[in-house]
Lab assay of single mutants.
Amino acid sequence: NDEAKKEAEKLWKNNKSEDEIKERLERAGISPDEAEQWLQELR
């Protein structure tokens, strides 16, 4: 999970869309709710 979150953070810094980041997190096995929460922390 931490690995996926690091990846999400990297994508965020590269200005990827939130949808793309969420999709990537969900593919890594993170629930949509958790993915949404993680994005809010990044904002």
Rank of each mutant, 00 (worst) to 15 (best):
N1D: 09
N1Y: 14
N1I: 14
N1S: 12
N1K: 15
D2V: 12
D2W: 14
D2Q: 12
D2T: 10
D2G: 09
E3S: 10
E3D: 11
E3C: 15
E3Q: 10
E3F: 11
E3Y: 11
A4Y: 09
A4H: 07
A4P: 04
A4N: 04
A4T: 06
A4W: 15
K5S: 02
K5E: 02
K5L: 08
K5D: 02
K5N: 01
K5Q: 03
K5Y: 14
K6G: 04
K6V: 06
K6C: 15
K6D: 05
K6M: 09
K6H: 05
E7Q: 06
E7F: 12
E7H: 05
E7V: 09
A8M: 10
A8P: 01
A8I: 09
A8W: 04
A8T: 03
A8Q: 01
A8K: 01
A8V: 06
E9T: 09
E9Y: 15
E9S: 09
E9Q: 10
E9K: 12
K10M: 13
K10W: 14
K10E: 13
K10L: 13
K10P: 01
K10Y: 12
L11M: 15
L11S: 04
L11K: 02
L11A: 05
L11Y: 06
W12H: 03
W12G: 00
W12Q: 00
W12L: 04
W12K: 00
K13H: 08
K13V: 05
K13T: 05
K13P: 00
N14I: 07
N14G: 08
N14T: 09
N14R: 05
N14A: 14
N14H: 07
N14W: 11
N14V: 05
N15W: 06
N15E: 04
N15P: 02
N15S: 07
K16S: 09
K16C: 15
K16Y: 14
K16I: 14
K16L: 12
S17T: 09
S17I: 04
S17N: 08
S17R: 04
S17K: 05
S17Q: 04
S17F: 04
S17D: 07
S17V: 02
E18P: 08
E18N: 05
E18M: 11
E18I: 13
E18H: 09
E18C: 13
E18D: 10
E18R: 06
D19Q: 13
D19K: 12
D19A: 14
D19T: 11
D19V: 10
D19C: 15
E20V: 06
E20C: 14
E20D: 05
E20G: 03
E20W: 07
E20H: 03
I21F: 04
I21D: 01
I21S: 00
I21N: 00
I21E: 02
I21T: 02
I21C: 04
K22H: 02
K22R: 14
K22W: 06
K22Y: 06
K22N: 02
E23A: 12
E23N: 07
E23S: 10
E23T: 09
E23W: 09
E23D: 09
R24V: 15
R24T: 12
R24Y: 15
R24I: 15
R24P: 03
R24C: 15
R24N: 08
R24Q: 13
L25W: 03
L25Y: 00
L25S: 00
L25Q: 00
L25G: 01
L25R: 00
L25V: 02
L25I: 02
L25H: 00
E26G: 09
E26R: 14
E26I: 15
E26N: 08
E26L: 15
E26F: 15
E26H: 13
E26T: 13
E26S: 12
E26M: 15
R27F: 10
R27M: 12
R27K: 11
R27Y: 09
R27P: 03
A28I: 13
A28Q: 09
A28D: 06
A28N: 05
A28C: 14
A28P: 02
G29P: 02
G29W: 02
G29S: 02
G29Q: 02
G29R: 01
G29E: 03
G29N: 03
G29M: 02
I30M: 13
I30L: 10
I30W: 10
I30Y: 08
I30K: 02
I30Q: 01
I30T: 03
I30F: 11
I30H: 03
I30S: 02
I30C: 05
I30E: 02
S31Y: 02
S31R: 06
S31K: 08
P32R: 11
P32A: 11
P32H: 08
P32S: 10
P32L: 08
P32N: 08
P32K: 11
P32W: 10
D33N: 08
D33H: 10
D33P: 04
D33A: 12
D33L: 11
D33V: 11
E34A: 07
E34N: 04
E34C: 13
E34M: 14
E34I: 14
A35G: 01
A35D: 00
A35M: 09
A35Q: 07
E36I: 06
E36A: 10
E36C: 11
E36K: 05
E36T: 06
E36V: 05
E36D: 08
E36Y: 07
Q37Y: 05
Q37P: 00
Q37T: 08
Q37W: 06
W38D: 00
W38G: 00
W38H: 02
W38P: 00
W38K: 01
L39K: 00
L39V: 06
L39N: 00
L39E: 00
Q40W: 14
Q40L: 12
Q40N: 11
Q40M: 13
Q40Y: 10
Q40A: 13
E41A: 13
E41L: 13
E41P: 00
E41R: 14
E41D: 08
E41Q: 13
E41H: 13
E41Y: 14
E41S: 12
L42H: 04
L42A: 03
L42I: 07
L42S: 02
L42Y: 05
L42N: 01
L42V: 02
R43T: 03
R43K: 11
R43A: 04
R43S: 03
R43F: 09
R43Y: 05
R43P: 01
